[in-house]
Design a protein around this nucleic acid. Sequence first.
DNA 1: TATGATACTTACTAAAAGTATACTAATGGA
DNA 2: TCCATTAGTATACTTTTAGTAAGTATCATA
Lengths: 129, 129
Amino acid sequence: MIKVNNSEYNCPFEVAIDIMDGKWKLYILWHLRHKTRRFSDLKRRVPGITQKMLTQKLRELEEEKIVNRKVYAEVPPRVEYSLTEFGKQLEPIMEMLLEWGHYYSKAYGETDYDYECRPKNEKLLEIAS
Amino acid sequence: MIKVNNSEYNCPFEVAIDIMDGKWKLYILWHLRHKTRRFSDLKRRVPGITQKMLTQKLRELEEEKIVNRKVYAEVPPRVEYSLTEFGKQLEPIMEMLLEWGHYYSKAYGETDYDYECRPKNEKLLEIAS
DNA sequence: TATGATACTTACTAAAAGTATACTAATGGA
DNA sequence: TCCATTAGTATACTTTTAGTAAGTATCATA
């Protein structure tokens, strides 16, 4: 039994799933994987997210110690988000999810997306063919 | 732009997230990663899942071609679930999530769980210490 | 005739996620 | 003087998803 942030888990796999849950958190982390970014920058990059959801999810990620939040006492306000060490360790997992998604969607024919979304590694595709 | 199962995505990463979404699907896949299992077996193994949720999520995974469903014409009924090739390719990702969860929860002190839940690889822990 | 096993449905309720709009603060520029 | 800027908060609302509880089908066995 593990206790993390007031929840109990039997397995660290559950911990990971619980933290990644919902469709927004991984998108946010994805856009933070190489760069510190400001709130508005994230809002532009995460398609369809509302201000409320972005704020909410960033607060959760901060609580969970996956992102750092740095506020600059300026007007207009400036707040920068970056990955903590825990967050950085998720990068290879995200790369693998990208690769899997690419492999999966190839089976559906259309795979025309921009540079940032192209997997570096196409191991899975070789397996598939 | 990618079209998969009536949804549109800009990036294969979105595809993967959308398919893994919710807390049940990965748990189910986790228990199918090495073995074909029956409905009731999965129900016992996925803690807290209801019959309805299990049925629903298995149907979605079947639709998405991540699990195979095989019905035996017997009474009492027997239905077996197994991973498709797409499903099998998720195994290393699940192993990494387990490893990450282990690494993450170690920071919270309590990491006492059973054999099946111990990560094979402790790379991340070496990085952390 | 009743019970038990398995793999479900169906109807309903509760909780979480998402939408929409209005509001705030301090400063620089038109 | 007024507007725009940024990163939010507040409020009310709707929609979607999750969860609960009960019911169904088939046949074998007691």
